[in-house]
């Protein structure tokens, strides 16, 4: 039984002057200090009695240069850590080059929650159900991390270690997430199944990104990521490269997605249903992307 508190437990709010101070403080208090940005996950978890040892909440969203989205036609997109989901959704550069990311961000909870929730926060929270994790992975996201030893990059491909567990160490603060330019002609789609139509957590989430590729036998390359079917996002790269893309091939790829995941039973859904939905929604998402690739559809 979850025994949620009526309010937040005791802690001290800490607002460091700069990144160095923030990293130092977090590293010096590895058990008791937590960084937070929008707080939408942090406060809920604190109230629910997780992280009982937390004594300091370190507000890292007001540190320099972290509230912007920048786009460079050569290098790609950078989303600052304090950028909210709503800002991601509304940004025209995101919409024109990374529309899959906007689509996934739009599916997170509700508008007022997305005012505070951040893309980087969603990634760092590392929930298996995170809506944007698939898109961030498939776009090749790399986190810019400030730690006690200065800045470094953390590619998302090796970032997720378990539910709520990541490659971040005490003192680490993510300042931004960067995405290289997508392969020209890329089309993406996020297919989310919740219990009700909007605002729910994903029972199953399927993210697909595809693009033309002259080096493959099929002339295309598809990448697929699954949410809510394992402790970390499941990624199936390089699908549908070997033979011409046909409905049968799409079906086969969807079956491959189903075979690749090992979901569990929980209050949101059974393992049996989840597996079947991975197949059906993967088929649906792959088909949408395939149709998009043929018609110039760029995702929603």
């Amino acid at each position: 039984m979850r025994e949620a508190h009526p309010g937040l437990p005791d802690f001290d709010y800490v607002r460091p002057a700069d990144l160095e101070e923030a990293s130092r403080f977090l590293a010096q208090n590895p058990q008791t200090a937590r960084p937070f940005m929008g707080g939408t996950d942090t406060f809920v978890r604190l109230r629910d009695g997780f992280w009982k040892e937390t004594r300091y909440l370190v507000d890292v969203k007001n540190l320099d240069g972290r509230s912007e989205i920048t786009f460079d036609p050569q290098k790609g997109l950078t989303v600052g850590a304090a950028v909210s989901m709503n800002q991601v959704v509304a940004n025209p550069r995101v919409g024109s080059h990374y529309s899959l990311l906007a689509q996934a961000a739009h599916r997170v909870a509700s508008y007022q929650l997305r005012t505070r929730a951040t893309l980087v926060g969603n990634v760092c929270n590392a929930s298996p159900a995170g809506d944007t994790l698939g898109a961030c992975l498939l776009f090749g996201g790399v986190l810019r991390v400030h730690g006690v030893e200065g800045f470094r990059d953390e590619p998302l491909a090796s970032f997720f270690q378990g539910p709520g567990r990541t490659a971040l160490k005490p003192g680490d603060i993510v300042t931004a997430i960067r995405f290289p330019l997508p392969v020209p002609g890329s089309v993406g789609h996020y297919e989310k199944l919740g219990r009700n139509l909007l605002s729910d957590l994903a029972i199953v989430g399927v993210t697909v990104l595809g693009h033309p590729d002259s080096s493959t036998a099929s002339g295309y390359r598809f990448h697929l990521a699954l949410a809510s079917v394992g402790p970390v996002p499941v990624v199936l790269p390089d699908l549908l490269t070997q033979a011409p893309v046909t409905p049968e091939a799409l079906e086969e790829a969807a079956g491959q997605a189903m075979e690749s995941c090992h979901p569990i039973d929980d209050v949101r859904g059974s393992a049996r249903y989840r597996k079947l939905m991975v197949r059906n929604l993967s088929r649906r998402a792959l088909t949408r992307v395939w149709e998009g690739l043929q018609s110039g559809y760029r995702g929603e």
């Binding site: 709010y13 929008g38 707080g39 939408t40 406060f43 809920v44 909440l57 507000d59 709503n86 508008y111 007022q112 929650l113 005012t115 505070r116």
Partner: peptide, 15 residues
Amino acid sequence: LNGEPVNSCLVLAVE
């Protein structure tokens, strides 16, 4: 909050 709707239960007053 600064012109955008938020859940005020998930914002610290000190923020």
